[in-house]
Design a protein around this nucleic acid. Structure first.
Lengths: 347, 347
DNA sequence: ATGAAAGCGCTAACAG
DNA sequence: CTGTTAGCGCTTTCAT
């Protein structure tokens, strides 16, 4: 005997009404069209039969799927899992499912993702790693797909996003180093085609002036990627100039890790010879050697807010594109200290 | 003007044939029913119109959704992202989407997950953290949902799974410690309701005999969870006996991390006073202080194989439930060394 | 307030 | 080989 999954027709015949009546009852928006008593009775029977709406059928009819895609370039980057989790939990609580679209290594072009989404009637998209000029954004707008950016945003500020307050972050980190007594501070930033890379870099430059610190272009490098090797290479480059500096402010924890490598390669010590600050406070940086002083970003909350924002936009696609910024805070650990008196930091 | 997404009818009328003919052409399994020329022509037109099959409609008819769920308890545990990535990439290459079901913190009961899956016609399930007796397994079997376990398996060996060779792992770790000269080796295992916790524990006991080492139950504790605090608590417990031991073999990297904490708390040093080995080689353990000697598990590959196995089972649900085991290998870093001559390791 | 009927896009049985 | 027909489960006019 095959177990037949109860459908709307089963409920209807059991209740002695027409399927459309059942449909009306089961849909919150139309429930009021049906008389109280009947509605209650139908609800009871539906529960009794263990009825669940078939989202495929419903979606086929209404062009909705109650499914949202989360696009991330690389789940292996520790920054993303907390965000994804925040998104997933929030969406789930609202009856939505999240499909994971890894835009990374896989040569599934972003066009391909959009195609897939359209084909599957995906209701909305959360993009966790937009570039500053990201074609996917226009694709979504053209296709009328609700979109929310999280973590990084785009130059065109007309799209909903939940991001970290990078200006504040850089200011906090720089202040921390200055308070420790550093004056010659190197900067290793991220790719300039990302909003975080760009904003953090611009802000660093600005803050240098604000705090009346010397600007030496040789001490400022933007890495090609947010990776350890890129961070190491960037610092090697700076060290090549053999100029004096006692601290490095980096735009990302992985970059900071790369700095550790370069520092060790040169037989130097962090923080005794060079202080290093990170950005993100990704999991386990407190276990590194030395534990990394960095900026904590509420990644979970970023995900939650992004999901909420998307839910809002899916309900009301015409609404204004909000931008939400969450404040980071400094977590001081052991990779920063006051500069030594006698410091000839490198060479 | 609204852009109408080309459907099978559009293609048919453009080609001057009946929709069902188009359907046959577009479906690999039935394509051979149509004459070569016509098929080619229809394919051409479909491409020209940018036709994509609507999986919702197709799924409604065929009871398939080309969607698979990945159930994990906590994406934030670094073990899972590589597995998920492996699964996702492989599935994607075969036209399947993966929805993420976080069974963790969220009180979405496993029943709830199954409900959701049935409602959405999900074609299969990958479970990354089964307990040894996991009700979800029976649910899947009852419902006829293809299931593949990854990372952990269940006691009933009649279900497809891709797991690590835990016996080999424990043997390798123990051998390594013995070769270093350790004789008094403590063990901190995982929850006994998981296959990994159970197997590793049993194997440790067995290997102790094989290698003719003393068995002291006071030096053997199974932690309540695979977490740092649980690892720390377990080691504290062992240290309470004030017995001599020079090394700890743990069943999990997070547990090893907890050991670091307990060791430091007692003013001791790893590895000088106590050597520690982990299990999993999760990302970034090479950056810890000290870098962790551990067993490397090919997590990505675990995911890939699991996806492949599921694909196979979805095609042929009746097939035998294969169990695939992947071999781990030892990665020696700095948390292990030879025992000091004069070691009174704790207290 | 409820029923009837049509149709979302696709596939599968059955004809021819 | 190709066309016809029916229907997956649901929603939504349009009647009543």
């Amino acid at each position: 005997m095959v177990k037949h999954r109860a459908n709307i027709k089963d409920v209807a015949s059991r209740a002695g009404v027409h399927p459309s009546t059942v449909s009306r009852v089961l849909n919150p928006a139309t429930r009021s069209m049906v008389s109280e008593d009947l509605a209650a009775e139908i609800t009871r029977i539906a529960n009794e039969l263990g009825y669940r709406r078939n989202p495929l059928a419903s979606g086929l009819r209404t062009q909705k799927s109650y499914t949202v895609a989360i696009v991330i370039p690389d789940l292996t980057n520790p920054v993303f899992p907390p965000i994804v989790r925040g998104v997933e939990h929030t969406l789930d609580a609202h009856g939505y499912n999240a499909i994971l679209a890894d835009s990374g290594s896989k040569q599934r072009s972003e066009k391909g993702i959009i195609e897939n989404m359209k084909a599957r009637q995906i209701d909305g998209l959360i993009l966790a790693a937009a570039r500053r000029k990201d074609p996917i954004v226009n694709d979504c707008i053209e296709e009328g797909i609700p979109l929310v950016l999280v973590n990084r945003t785009v130059d065109n500020h007309n799209v909903a996003a939940v991001i970290n307050d990078d200006e504040l972050g850089i200011e906090l980190a720089l202040k921390h180093l200055i308070e420790l007594g550093h004056r010659c501070i190197a900067y290793i930033g991220g790719p300039q085609n990302t909003s975080t890379g760009y904003t953090r870099y611009r802000t660093f430059l600005k803050m240098l002036k604000t705090f009346d610190l010397p600007v030496d272009r040789d001490l400022i490098v933007n890495a090609k990627a947010y990776t350890e090797p890129a961070g190491q290479a960037a610092l090697e480059h700076i060290m090549g100039y053999e100029k004096k500096f006692t601290a490095i402010l980096t735009a990302n924890d992985l970059l900071a890790l790369g700095c550790y490598d370069a520092i060790n390669e040169h037989g130097l010590n962090c923080p005794m010879d060079i202080s290093v600050t990170g950005f993100n406070d990704m999991p386990y940086v407190d276990r590194f050697n030395p534990p990394l002083t960095t900026l904590h970003i509420p990644l979970d909350e970023l995900g939650v807010q992004a999901a909420l924002l998307l839910l809002e936009r899916m309900q009301n696609p015409g609404a204004l594109a909000k931008q939400i910024r969450l404040a980071p805070h400094m977590v001081i650990r052991e990779s920063t200290t006051s500069p030594a008196e006698n410091t000839p930091p490198n060479k």
